[in-house]
Amino acid sequence: MIYLDNAATTMIKPKCVIDAVVNAMTHMGNAGRGANEASLDASRIIYDAREKLSTLFNLNNPSRVAFTCNSTESLNTAIKGILTKDDHAITTALEHNSVLRPLYELEEMGMGLSIVNCDENGNIDYHDFEKLIKPSTKSIVCTHASNLIGNLLDIKKIGQIAKKHDLILIVDASQSAGVFPIDMEDMNIDVLCFTGHKGLLAPQGTGGICVKENVNIRPLKVGGSGIKTFSKTHPEEMPTILEAGTLNGHAIAGLNAAIDYLKEEKIENIQKREEKLMFRFYNGIKDIKDIKIFGNFENKRAAIVTFNVRDIDSALFSDELAMYHDISTRAGGHCAPLMHKAMNTIEQGAVRFSFSHYNTEEEVDKAIEAVKEIAANN
């Protein structure tokens, strides 16, 4: 199988990640739930991962890194823990439902919500953020890279706007963490939400939320914490306030190893490799008759190519890739409804190819030929 659905999850993980998970499953206890060596070993590994993530994103405070199951949990925690019905928030049309649905829930409760629109290729006007700011605006919530078309937003520019107006910037780094450099200080990011199973090359079931010291978040969940057992209320200090219950220590051990792998391989080298493969594919299909490729390919972007050919249903196209060419892609709505509205593809959906540095030029060339064949025969 040629796996080209890495924006959904990176299927191939480094061997060191797999080894770390296996080792953890045979030696790791429950972190913070005892003084035995197995429990202490778990605590050490989890703290080590906090330190590495804090350094990776230039947060420089491991205690402000809380672990979650994925970006969805991180974003729900941040959005629902910061905003109230009396606030106003700004987001963009490029967002995943993990951003939109929590915001819509709050909107139903009375919160104000404004959306920065985009054209069919995901281009936005950054001046629109300031135009939408109101006295009640509390936060800007936006993606770093579109999961549908791969466009990279200028987070530093958005961060400057947020800082100027004393707004909390919440960033969804699902498609960028581990592939693009993220500097929370330089970009003025107040809350960074990420998942482990994509660019960070970690197991599924890992994610996190990095929170600047001046930001307070109400917990999404309360319960067991390993400390203050006899208190009726959940502990308020980070990271415990956002980590009710037993952490996924086995998978976090894999995430810990994955960060070491990224450091050794260098994120910039991984990004360049993925970009090279993406453009090889893009240049190989862009002249196919009646193809429509979405996204801005003139600026830095995630390694994603999304397209349609004439009115061929995207699910049919993706199914033929899988059945007759053994190529895994993704079709449909991709949990990005506003972007599909901008692209005018709500009914048709779109076919998405997404690349990993583990992919090869040979695989890309086979994918190009498969797209050409399906386009010609339908």
Rank of each mutant, 00 (worst) to 15 (best):
S314P: 11
R280N: 01
D290V: 06
I293F: 09
R280V: 01
K292A: 09
S318E: 11
A315M: 11
T306N: 03
H234N: 12
L255D: 00
A251N: 14
R273Y: 07
I252V: 12
R273A: 07
E275T: 15
E236V: 12
K286S: 07
T306P: 07
R273D: 02
D326P: 03
P239T: 10
L316D: 05
Q271N: 09
H250I: 13
I252N: 00
E275R: 08
S314Y: 03
G245W: 02
E275N: 14
Y261A: 03
T306V: 04
N269G: 05
N269Y: 07
I241Q: 01
E264M: 11
M323P: 00
E268C: 04
D290M: 07
I293K: 09
V305H: 05
D319C: 11
Y324W: 11
N308C: 14
A315G: 07
I327F: 02
L255K: 06
M278N: 07
L316N: 05
F281Q: 02
H250K: 15
L321Y: 03
I312W: 03
N248Y: 13
L316A: 12
G284K: 06
D260A: 11
I270F: 04
N248F: 14
D313T: 06
I267F: 01
H250C: 12
A253I: 10
E320P: 01
N299M: 13
A315C: 09
E320T: 09
K289W: 04
Y261E: 01
H234D: 06
G284M: 08
D319W: 10
